[in-house]
Simulated assay, not measured.
Amino acid sequence: MGIFRIGIAGIGIMGTFHADAITSGAIQGAKLAAICDSSAELLGKSRSRYGEQVAYYGSAEEMMTSGEIDGILVATPHYDHPQLAIQAFAHGLHVLIEKPAGVYTKNVREMNEAAKASGKVFAIMYNQRLNPMYQKLRELIESGELGEIRRTNWIVTNWYRTQSYYNMGSWRATWKGEGGGVLINQCPHQLDLWHWTTLLTPKRIRAHCQFGKHRSIEVENEVTAYVEYENGASGVFVTSTAESPGTNRFEVAGSRGKIVIENGKMSFSQLRQSESEFNAACTNPFGSPECWNIDIPVPPGDGPQHKGILQNWTNAVLNGEPLIAPGQEGIHGLMLSNAMLLSTWTDQWVDFPIDEERFYNELQQRIRMSESRQEAVR
């Protein structure tokens, strides 16, 4: 295959962003071959923007069976991601999905099984994995520079959103339309990075989600969660869309010191001797390990971001390049968000892996209650 022919499902804001990247020539080896959307208006705008060299379809099925594409980029609302991916695999297509992987892990697990059975290249748009800051953090942890991880703490409250933002669409911030709030809409990248950089496996979680706090919405917009890991470490995750000014501070503490990422900088308070070794040898009741404060050099900028993931997916299809963000890994961050909601709804600890059937049933209850509001705000 000399050229990778891509079809885009959903030509809203992100779909248009990706289409522009491909048609600009920024993605080597890729061609925008087709676009599908249920909106005739959006298809008309796309036709004016990209011309007749692109095929246009009113349904994903029509585009998938057209013979015009080799792979599909899914940029539709959250609930559709697994369904369209499974459909695409059945038609022998490669798949790249926008984040999040879906709304509930039960559906995403089915998508992952379909991907494995298909043998096709499956990726997810976790573009923050290309951010040099988080790549460096993962490198330091993976190499053992930080020692054994003992604590993580991420406060990410710089997602401020006004009521007018939520009023932009009747589907927004509803269980029926989005399936969640800050955890499913704003935080999928942080939830992925939390798992991807620390290499830790959660054991159980206890969360407190506030629904519609300071905003007239159905879903969670303020969350505080406490997680325990298999290795005995603990973690805290705090997020909000109603706090200003917000904070974005990620701390990872280990037996060899602590790394802090904040305000675009990374600092490493490195212990000359591991805490365990120091503690075993120290006879001073008030002694403390020698610590060196180091500013970690990180390349400027945020990396190639979305274009980098799109190029990587294309390269994986054309020449077997390893994926930066395999689609199957989308379930990890989603399970964290599902667990936080389930813990709140049941007012108890939630073990990993979560009870997927119970989460699904709890979500369906809220979707049914969501219907009257959906009609009222149209």
Rank of each mutant, 00 (worst) to 15 (best):
G15N: 08
F17A: 05
S24A: 05
Q28I: 02
A34H: 00
C36F: 02
S38D: 11
E41S: 12
L43T: 12
G44E: 09
K45E: 13
S48V: 08
E52L: 00
E61N: 13
E61R: 13
E62S: 07
M63V: 00
V74L: 12
Q83Y: 10
A90R: 15
L93P: 02
L96P: 08
I97W: 03
K99A: 01
P100M: 02
T105D: 04
K106S: 04
G119F: 08
G119W: 01
L130Y: 07
K136Y: 06
R138H: 10
E139D: 11
E139M: 15
E139P: 13
G144Y: 09
G144T: 02
G147D: 08
R151Q: 13
T157K: 12
R161E: 14
R172H: 11
K176I: 15
N185W: 11
C187K: 10
P188I: 03
H189E: 15
H189I: 01
W196N: 14
R204H: 11
I205F: 10
R206Q: 10
K213S: 06
T224V: 09
V227D: 04
E228L: 11
E230K: 10
A233P: 01
G235R: 12
T241N: 15
P245M: 07
N248V: 07
I259K: 15
I261F: 09
K265G: 05
S267E: 12
F268T: 09
A281V: 03
F286Q: 10
G287T: 00
W292A: 13
I296T: 11
P297Q: 01
V298A: 00
G301V: 00
P304G: 05
K307F: 05
L310F: 02
N312K: 13
N315F: 13
P322S: 03
I324R: 14
L334M: 11
L341D: 13
S343R: 11
D347Q: 11
Q348H: 09
V350D: 04
D355K: 05
Q374T: 14
